[in-house]
């Protein structure tokens, strides 16, 4: 196979659409900042999702029309949002009781690195001189029932994000359930990374080459 042929996986919107298909109707979901926010645009027909934003809103709606922004109605990314019919506001201790107490069904986050045992690193590169900032990510991965990561398969410079063990400081240990990338959908299993779906026209060998750990192909699932 020629290395000069660029491999084109799913685009950002296709990744978000693919993930949205796997969310059951009626789920309470926390969306992280970045690509995870796109998931809200691809709710499958007939399903209702309720979005939680940890700064204190359940029932978060889309961005307001221009001129309708309210500086006191924002999401965790500090962007202007709206409140859907049936929404509720609450204080931070209640908001994180929803998270830590296991009341939310799904957390969708971005990642810097994910290890084959489900460790997640997404808050710091650990560089000396960097300003540490953690926000709510450690609470989300520790408390929400399921954790999905939605991320490009590699960094902007082509470094694999899926690795045997994380070199960046962890957000949580053994917390990730499933990863959606531009190249594949991958479960974390006791045997490591298990691909359950590969993007159309992407050779499995390419996904394995972009993964810095053993990846089991979809046809060789553990149960077979």
């Amino acid at each position: 196979m020629s290395t000069s042929v660029p491999v084109q996986g799913w685009g950002r919107e296709a990744m978000a659409r693919r993930l949205a298909q796997d969310i059951p109707d009626g789920s309470y979901i926390n969306l992280g900042i970045g690509i995870p926010e796109l998931v809200a645009r691809f709710v499958p027909d007939g399903r209702t999702f309720i979005y939680h934003t940890e700064n204190g809103l359940l029932g978060m709606g889309p961005s307001p029309a221009e001129g309708q922004e309210d500086p006191e109605l924002i999401n965790a990314g500090k962007r202007h949002v709206t409140a859907n019919p049936g929404a509720a506001y609450f204080h931070h201790a209640d908001s994180f009781a929803m998270i830590r107490g296991g009341h939310l069904d799904l957390s969708i986050l971005g990642a810097m690195q994910i290890s084959q045992s489900g460790d997640l690193a997404n808050w710091s590169t650990g560089q000396p001189g960097a300003i540490p900032a953690v926000g709510g990510a450690m609470d989300l991965v520790a408390g929400v029932k399921k954790v999905f990561v939605l991320t490009q398969h590699t960094t902007k410079t082509g470094e694999p994000k899926l690795v045997e063990s994380c070199t960046y400081p962890l957000t949580g240990q053994g917390v990730v359930d499933r990863i959606y990338t531009d190249l594949a959908v991958i479960d974390i299993t006791p045997a490591g990374f298990q691909a359950i779906e590969i993007a159309p026209d992407v050779p499995f060998e390419h996904v394995q080459a972009m993964t810095n750990a053993k990846l089991t192909p979809p046809s060789a699932s553990l149960s077979e």
Binding site: H92, A93, F96, R100, A133, V134, G135, A137, M138, D139
Partner: peptide, 19 residues
């Protein structure tokens, strides 16, 4: 101020801070 060492930081996860 942090790099200068004037202001110290105790970093706390958001939910832990609230609780």
């Amino acid at each position: 101020l942090y790099r200068e060492g004037f202001t110290q930081l105790e970093l706390v996860p958001q939910g832990t801070l609230a609780e």
